[in-house]
Simulated scan of single mutants.
Amino acid sequence: MIYFKFPFDEKLYSTDKNHDQTAVLFKSFDQAETIGFNGNIIEVTEIPDTFSGKLLSQDDSHFSAETHEEYLDKLQKAIEVIKKNQLPKLVLSRRKIFTNFNEIDLKKSFHNLCAAYPNAFRYIFIADDNAWMGAFSEVLGKFNKSTHEFETMSLAGTIPTSESWTDKEIEEQKPVSSYIRNVLEKFSTQSEIQESETYDHISGNIKHLKTDFKLKIKPEDLEAIIEELHPTPAVCGIPKEFCKEKIQELEKFPRELYAGFIRIETDEFIQYFVNLRCAKLYSDAVHLFVGGGITAQSNPEKEWIETELKSEAVLKNLSFLN
């Protein structure tokens, strides 16, 4: 069972399970895990009352949340790796685990999330022992089946909406744009790449720097582009393979679906969203996944505060039954 809303679209969608074609597909960060929902995408009026916290499984992961000190120590190690190898950026994440509740009100929580992030792809699903909820607006790719236009974006740098950009965030976003530009140039035989100015992208209580890209591609190149783009420097780092190895070494937990991607196919488009600002839901726990881009100029304490802000995206919208 999955329910979702597209960015800037308040219609509620699900899948009807009427055929074997996968309409919505979740891929984990390492692409080792796949969760799919078959059928046609259909509009529904509301989430049924039977879709409740009673369907959630217990948390038997035995994970304990990373402490403030542990995370700062990990970031310091990451900064040393960055300096030693002259990396432009390395992305690290952590899990924040919340357990102080009786039962999650799934319908109300999703309603709150949708209201808070109208410009995001918003979803909630239960599939066997897996249940996740999230809202984020980073597009890994959007392919128009009629025009063959492909769109993507460079999204990086995070600060509270009330603050001004510093050199750290500006320098963090530049290599992300450069990486995406280089990938797209390999597939730009049909047209020139169109690139926007970099601008502010507001997401709840925080903002990012964003640059949009567009070009025409061959339909048969779509999956190859996605393979090249994922994981982008916004969720991994540069160079990609080296940073993936360091993430495995440094991070305490597997990322699972966090920082993976979601593929949705409709009659007109095939869209890919990066799965950030998300949480794994259990009957007795919520695992919130958050992270940030680390550079040689990073301040570990500020990075911790950034992840705390990001965790609020889901946590502040959760609703509980007494």
Rank of each mutant, 00 (worst) to 15 (best):
I262T: 11
F125W: 06
E308R: 00
L315S: 07
D59N: 14
T99V: 15
H148Q: 14
P160N: 02
W132A: 00
L56V: 07
D129R: 12
I262S: 01
K11M: 06
A285P: 00
D267M: 01
N40V: 03
G134S: 09
L106I: 13
C243R: 02
V176S: 04
I97H: 07
E185R: 00
T147M: 04
F101K: 02
H62N: 13
K142Y: 12
E43K: 05
G292F: 11
V274M: 02
K83F: 08
K280I: 05
G36E: 12
P239D: 02
E69D: 09
I238T: 14
T198L: 03
K5R: 13
L72F: 05
A116S: 15
F150Y: 14
L321T: 13
L318K: 00
K207A: 10
H201L: 14
E163K: 15
L309G: 08
S162A: 07
N322L: 06
E66F: 04
F8K: 12
S93N: 11
L321H: 05
V235M: 05
L276V: 02
T22V: 14
S109I: 12
L87V: 03
I97A: 11
E268T: 06
K252S: 05
F121M: 02
F98D: 01
D49A: 10
E33V: 10
L56F: 06
G53K: 01
A78R: 05
Y272R: 00
I226F: 03
K210V: 09
S93R: 06
E256T: 15
G260Q: 02
E195S: 13
D73C: 06
E149N: 10
S164E: 14
A131F: 07
